[in-house]
Design a binder for these strands. Structure first.
Lengths: 203, 203
DNA sequence: GTCTATATTTCGATAGAC
DNA sequence: GTCTATCGAAATATAGAC
């Protein structure tokens, strides 16, 4: 058995470990298929066919199908940690939200594929790793700040809804309706999503 | 073989055909499981277990698993037709969008479960019924007005993004982050989503 | 690192009794 | 309308050659 944790680092040069390596290509293909078909709706045969390798070859890189999802969720949690931090810092200060959202939009822009695969599979992934000693608490800690905001009983319903709408507004062009904005540059998306969300938060 | 089309109408009284009938309960359970686990990630065994019937019992009500999805998508298309109409009517008039969104929010409020299951399975459902003679064109016709808006080359990128954000803002509290707003009434949700989306559209 | 071949389980679906 | 029993296909996963 190969130590997968060690392999997640790009330790040596040469072919087979860099961004063009089979393991990275596999994670890219799996992320795409999990996004369009869902984790449960994607088979290892489909992943293998896209990579033009045999099903068995996958098992050299990952012990189980669940481990493929685990590798993806680990990366999502790295990204989401940053978002949770911004939210906690912003607290209940209305002006602080503006700055927090600017940073969150930036994070979303540079990690759109991870946002999309999480959007489609959050229930499945949470159920899969709820009892995982490392990923379970991480997932819970990441969802907490969001719930503490949207469901905060100390906040006016108007503000709770405004914040949920602000997140949704950002997710619209970046995650939900991505296909319609493929002709626009990252800079254009950032600029107009920022001003639109800002207008929403200002009320 | 039973004529399923005839059964979709509540034709006779008595038990077994009304809202508490097995067929309706089955569609409700399937909609919920397709939402959380995805269409491909949900087995007929799981549906049967939730209904406390055998797997074979499902085949009395639906010829295939695909037909269960079909019945759900048919209802989604009924709802989406109304939305497509509002969008087409609104055209490029900025003030007309406000009224259109008020009506779309109302439709979303009364059909949240259908919005959620479509949000999670739109790719899967579109692929399933792309070649269906009745559902295929319906799905295409329903997605067209949305694309004509978000991807309209005659519209300024700022406005294209604003509209995508407006849809996303509505989807936030109603579809994506539903669990955090379960304590709020429909009236509270409608009121504050309306004003928030209006502020976003006003700029 | 990747292959063929295979074991085991679960899936969607059918047959036929009640 | 629902059941038990069963079929063939497809799923995850393993063994062992190269």
């Amino acid at each position: 058995m190969v130590n997968q944790a060690a392999k997640s680092q790009v330790s040596r040069g040469g072919s087979g470990s860099g961004p063009g390596g089979t393991r990275e290509r596999l994670l890219a293909v799996a992320t795409e298929l999990f996004t369009t078909q869902g984790y449960g709706g994607t088979s290892l045969r489909e992943i293998a066919e896209r990579l033009d390798v045999s099903k068995a070859a996958i098992y050299y890189h990952f012990r189980t199908k669940e481990d493929i999802a685990r590798a993806i969720v680990e990366r999502i949690m790295e990204v989401n940690g940053g978002i949770a931090d911004r939210l906690t810092v912003a607290g209940k200060d209305s002006e602080a939200w503006q700055r927090a959202f600017d940073q969150i939009i930036e994070i979303a822009l540079t990690n759109r594929q991870l946002f999309m695969v999480w959007d489609r599979n959050d229930d499945a992934f949470q159920k899969l790793f709820a009892d995982d000693p490392v990923l379970g608490p991480q997932i819970e800690a990441q969802g907490e700040p969001l719930g503490a905001l949207f469901a905060d009983p100390g906040l006016a319903p108007e503000d709770r809804i405004r914040l949920g709408c602000a997140f949704g507004a950002m997710m619209g062009p970046l995650v939900m309706y991505t296909t319609f904005y493929e002709d626009l540059s990252t800079d254009t998306l950032r600029e107009h999503i920022r001003t639109t969300v800002a207008a929403l938060l200002a009320g």
